[in-house]
Simulated scan of single mutants.
Amino acid sequence: MKPIKITITSLLISSFLFFSCNSLKTAVYDQYSYQKTVEIKVEASNLIDKATTPYEDNLQEVGELGLEIQKIIEYEKNKPNNEITYAMWQVLADKDKNLLVGFFKRWKEKGQLNSFFVEEAKVQIMQAMDLLLEYEIKKDKETEDKLLQLITQ
């Protein structure tokens, strides 16, 4: 009778561990995602600073950054259990939102932006990207909630 109790107990513990780990459904830390996000953040920061100059003078850099953003979105889209990071990249890339690609759209439409607007927009964009980086490192509930709040705005 004792071996049956041990087997049942072992089975219950194994089941509990399997289902509790499986219910987390969050992608694990990814060095590539972190590195590419840092690279894009630095490139974006430098390019945002140039928005006080004519957009036409920076077409190549804007295009190159846009390509890097498309690449990371495609990468994030295909990672399992990665819906939150993927959704945040979609927000950053949405030309109708007031974040990264939306900033470049406004710059293109206006031709050149004033320094006050550039400084204010840069703070918001960099904070959003910092939050994405923090989430990639921690993958905790608090950071996830902050990202979800930003995504659903």
Rank of each mutant, 00 (worst) to 15 (best):
32 Y>Q: 11
104 F>C: 08
83 E>Y: 04
46 N>G: 06
8 I>K: 06
143 T>P: 01
129 M>R: 03
120 E>M: 15
24 L>N: 11
17 L>H: 01
66 G>P: 03
138 K>G: 00
51 A>K: 06
46 N>W: 05
130 D>Q: 08
105 K>E: 14
122 K>T: 03
121 A>W: 08
110 K>D: 09
150 L>M: 14
19 F>M: 05
93 A>W: 03
112 Q>L: 05
117 F>H: 08
69 I>Q: 04
17 L>I: 15
81 N>S: 08
91 V>Y: 03
121 A>R: 12
108 K>T: 06
89 W>Q: 01
138 K>W: 02
146 K>H: 11
51 A>N: 06
9 T>W: 07
109 E>S: 09
19 F>C: 01
10 S>H: 04
31 Q>Y: 08
146 K>A: 10
53 T>L: 15
9 T>G: 07
125 I>W: 04
87 A>I: 05
98 N>E: 11
141 K>A: 07
22 N>A: 12
19 F>Y: 14
53 T>D: 12
105 K>Q: 13
125 I>L: 04
62 V>K: 09
56 E>Q: 12
60 Q>R: 12
108 K>Y: 11
106 R>C: 05
12 L>S: 10
124 Q>L: 15
58 N>D: 01
16 F>Y: 13
56 E>G: 06
3 P>C: 01
42 V>F: 09
108 K>M: 14
17 L>A: 05
46 N>Y: 10
113 L>F: 03
3 P>H: 10
39 E>R: 12
24 L>W: 11
64 E>R: 12
29 Y>M: 00
73 I>F: 05
127 Q>S: 10
18 F>G: 02
9 T>S: 14
153 Q>E: 13
2 K>E: 15
133 L>T: 07
18 F>N: 00
44 A>K: 08
75 Y>I: 00
31 Q>H: 10
108 K>I: 09
65 L>C: 08
95 K>L: 09
81 N>E: 03
42 V>T: 08
4 I>G: 00
92 L>Q: 07
116 F>W: 07
72 I>L: 12
46 N>P: 00
48 I>W: 01
149 Q>T: 15
144 E>I: 06
32 Y>G: 00
102 G>R: 02
23 S>D: 04
74 E>W: 07
116 F>A: 14
142 E>K: 15
57 D>Y: 11
19 F>A: 03
62 V>T: 06
33 S>D: 08
28 V>Q: 15
110 K>P: 06
52 T>C: 09
131 L>K: 12
107 W>H: 04
150 L>T: 06
87 A>L: 03
27 A>T: 02
51 A>M: 10
151 I>S: 02
134 E>K: 15
123 V>K: 08
22 N>R: 07
122 K>L: 07
64 E>P: 02
117 F>M: 11
149 Q>I: 11
71 K>H: 07
145 D>G: 06
69 I>D: 01
123 V>W: 03
83 E>R: 11
47 L>N: 00
60 Q>L: 13
152 T>I: 08
29 Y>R: 04
37 T>G: 01
59 L>A: 08
139 K>V: 00
111 G>A: 01
83 E>L: 06
63 G>S: 09
129 M>H: 07
104 F>P: 03
93 A>E: 03
54 P>I: 02
